[in-house]
Design a protein around this nucleic acid. Structure first.
Length: 467
RNA sequence: GGUGCGGUAGCCAAGUGGUAAGGCAAGGGUCUGCAAAACCCUCAUACGUCGGUUCGACCCCGACCCGCACCUCCA
């Protein structure tokens, strides 16, 4: 079975393959760097990372472009208020975002592009639109004339026909022909940043940035355009209008949108006090892997209810996975190989892949994985799992971690090094042998304090870091 | 009002026209110097409500109730 994705454009789950059969040309709407990313943003970006990783797991190459919006109304307002340039204002947030990406183990897109570095491309695109009669000027700004693009609304499945047919609907302080016409180029305002270009002194509208950058790096028709569900309208609808009016070709073959995240059953908002950044959550003592796991475990088209109970459950689930891996690595199994165990590994791999192929059904993929772990543990307990089966089981975990990427613990800064832990663990074993249980327990308590858990097993003492 | 999504056990969540994956929590057990940790077992006569179609529906159809999102900046 091929990979299938739900395509917002057709409202159907469709078989996916890149147009050239090899490289997936994918554009994702990245952050507007006017603040730290919140966990809602990060849900969408986690989805994008899972998407990317799965495409690669399925042996496609990726040409993945993410934009960074570093000029927009909010940025300008904040930088003016802070009396700094927009560049000075956005740089720290851009750096923070890249840091968050790394913390959550997102693979780097092949290209990360900034709006302010592509003003020329935007201007050219606006000029092309003007040549086609798709624009008009009003008050020195340039607008897109949606009345000239009959397919407007095809992505969001809204029928704007009535309004388009109607005469002038001026609901704005600006003179627009149609209420839904959107700005391509804003005339310069005093005290605000601007670029002096062939189409005037001003700055680009938000929507044109993505059309211009996507087509520059990926060509006229992308394989995938992804983003948060809220961007469907108007942002992506407008991107289609801008791009297709110029090229006459479909802008993207697949539009994939991630649902939003809510917090404790409510919409996340600063006023409700349930607005969290990754930094906030980590300061509360949670590991980034737990955040990543939670954000990845609910299929991307469902609303995700982010709760701290859920975060704890995610950490516990990761523990179970790591415990299984540790058991594979440290237990002594009989020589040989058990056929059923081999079949179990192969079957799980198949189920896992099928679930992921099915529109990235991560919940179902996890179900197959945990069933495998339980059955494997049972087999180990009853001697029906041999040394020759370790490789197959490790391959299952590797497949899982290729996309979920949560198996390796994040080592806290200033934490104990492995060697120090080994030494203390060894000292405790000696103490135990000498029946000095007080000292042994003291060491255990000390390590636990630092997030290290000791386990006594038949094969000796082993340790792990708390998830 | 328009468009779209969803209501499955304490919580999260998958799923199929033939009678409910998985995770967490909880209870029981194995192991152990006691613990901890780990592992195993148990855990929805039931899938928002009411009708209909069907030999049979949680899964199809209709109505209704509830929640949410977008239609304006928003991941």
């Amino acid at each position: 079975m091929p990979i299938r994705f739900y395509n917002t454009l057709t409202q159907k789950v469709e078989d996916f393959a890149p147009a050239d059969g090899k490289t997936v040309r994918m554009y994702v709407c990245g952050p507007t760097v006017y603040n730290y990313a919140h966990i809602g943003n990060l849900r969408t970006f986690t989805f994008q990372d899972i998407l990317r990783r799965w495409l690669r797991a399925r042996h496609f190459e990726t040409l993945h472009v993410m934009n960074i919006t570093d000029v927009d109304d909010k940025i300008i307002r904040a930088s003016v208020a802070g009396n700094v340039s927009i560049n000075e204002y956005t740089k720290p947030y851009e750096a923070a975002f890249l840091e968050d990406m790394a913390t959550l183990r997102f693979q780097q897109p092949e290209k990360i592009v900034r709006a302010t570095e592509h003003i020329g491309e935007m201007v050219s695109l606006i000029q092309s639109l003007t040549e086609k009669g798709m624009t008009y000027e009003s008050d020195g700004s340039i607008y897109y004339r949606i009345g000239k693009f009959p397919e407007y609304g095809k992505l969001s499945h809204n029928d704007f026909g009535g309004m388009i047919a109607g005469a002038r609907v001026d609901v704005d302080e600006y003179e627009k022909e149609n209420a839904r016409d959107f700005v391509l180029w804003k005339q310069k305002k005093d005290g605000e940043p601007s670029w002096n270009t062939a189409i005037g002194d001003g700055r680009p509208g938000w929507h044109i940035e993505c059309s211009a950058m996507a087509m520059k790096y990926l060509g006229e028709t992308l394989d995938i355009h992804a983003g948060g569900i809220d961007l469907t309208f108007p942002h992506h609808e407008n991107e289609i209008a801008q791009s297709e009016a110029v090229t006459g070709k479909p802008f993207a073959r697949f539009w994939i949108h991630a649902e939003h995240l809510i917090v404790e059953g409510q919409k996340m908002s600063k006023s409700l006090g349930n607005y969290y950044t990754l930094r906030d959550v980590m300061q509360m003592g949670y590991q980034p892997e737990a955040v990543r796991y939670l954000l990845a475990s609910v299929p991307y088209r469902n609303k995700l209810n982010f709760t701290f109970d859920g975060l704890k459950a995610a950490a516990a689930s990761i523990e179970r996975l790591r415990n299984f891996e540790r058991r594979l690595q440290t237990d002594k199994f009989p020589d040989g190989s058990v056929v059923e165990a081999e079949e179990r590994s192969a079957g799980t791999l198949r189920l896992f892949d099928e679930a992921m192929d099915d529109d990235l059904n991560t919940a179902s993929a996890l179900g197959a994985l945990f069933e495998f772990i339980r059955d494997s543990n049972t087999a180990m307990d009853s001697g029906a799992f041999n040394a020759g089966n370790v490789g197959g089981a490790m391959a299952v975990l590797a497949r899982f971690d290729e996309v979920f990427a949560v198996m390796t613990p994040t080592v806290a800064e200033g934490g104990l090094a492995d060697e120090e832990i080994d030494a203390l663990a060894a000292e405790r074993v000696s103490a135990k042998k000498a029946r000095n249980f007080a000292r042994a327990d003291a060491i255990r308590a000390e390590l636990l304090e630092k997030g290290i858990i000791l386990e006594d097993t038949k094969e000796g003492t082993r340790w792990k870091r708390k998830a």
